[in-house]
Amino acid sequence: MDGSSSALKGYMPVLKWFTKRLLIALITIYFAVTLSFFVVKAMPGDPVQALIQMFVSQYYMDYDSAKSLAEAAAPFIPKGSVLHQYISYLISFLHGNLGVSISYSTGTPVKDLLIQSIPWTVLVVGSALIISFAIGILIGTGMAYVHGSKIDSFLAVFFSVIRSIPEYVVALVLLIVFGFHFKWFPTRGAYSPNVTPGFNLPFIKDVLKHAALPILSWVIVHVSGWALSMRASTVTVLGEDYITYAKIRGLPSRRILVSYIGKNAILPLFTSFMLSIGFMFGGSVFIEYIFAYPGVGNLLYQAITMRDTYLMLGVFNIIIVAVVISALIADILYGVIDPRIRRGA
């Protein structure tokens, strides 16, 4: 048969695919949430005792005031069997209730803490991702054009080494050099206490200054990964027959660069771009700790040092949901932008 009926296929298969994909996402979230619940609940020791110990060792309190503080938190610590706690957690999770924190001003809903910190992480992770992706694409394309040359193979090794350097090392160096030594950038927090939060220029400027070093730390490490992926992808595309044929047809080089090389080389990177969002959320602990940045990672760090079970679970589950949803969106968007997937190749 000379023809393709796929172009005429209706939307039924798309709908079916989408339902299935959504179902898998929900099941994944359920299992991941369950797994982390039991892991977190397995943390040893009596929570109140752990809390007392923490207050003593972290805040150098004397035992009595630590004890009274911890006991104030006691009513907020869920009781009953782990299974019972699990079921009531699931039920409240479905209602959007993530329990209360026992470390931050005791009794604050975990949800509120998350709502306060998510925007900061999104700001840093999001800008870092976009900046490093953009730079990486440019460098990678350039490397692919001179593929096999001395400069290309040098950069390839250089970037694969840079990629393996932990981002906390980069962050520490930036902190010491540009924060403490040159004092070009603030070293802690998301904004200075003397500016009024809101949509005003001084505040925005201040926020950007505070976010600069955290973003730069991510960018330095991540640019190399994107550059290497883009290089590999572009080298493949450059060897494709449709590039040669486009040149023969006399298409202007700008058109070839954008809709031929660019589009076809970036497409395969798209999925990992989306997935990175979720993973950078999870990896934000180090950088946010170093710059005392009030995002999700810092919240997790606090929760762990304070044995704040529900806060910990809250952060965990937010990250799990972020990972699963970004994978889901990646799949859907990929279908939209790559015609080969869209019409069901």
Binding site: T28, G282, F316
Partner: peptide, 8 residues
Amino acid sequence: MTIPGLPL
């Protein structure tokens, strides 16, 4: 793979 590796 979905569970955030480092936090886990």
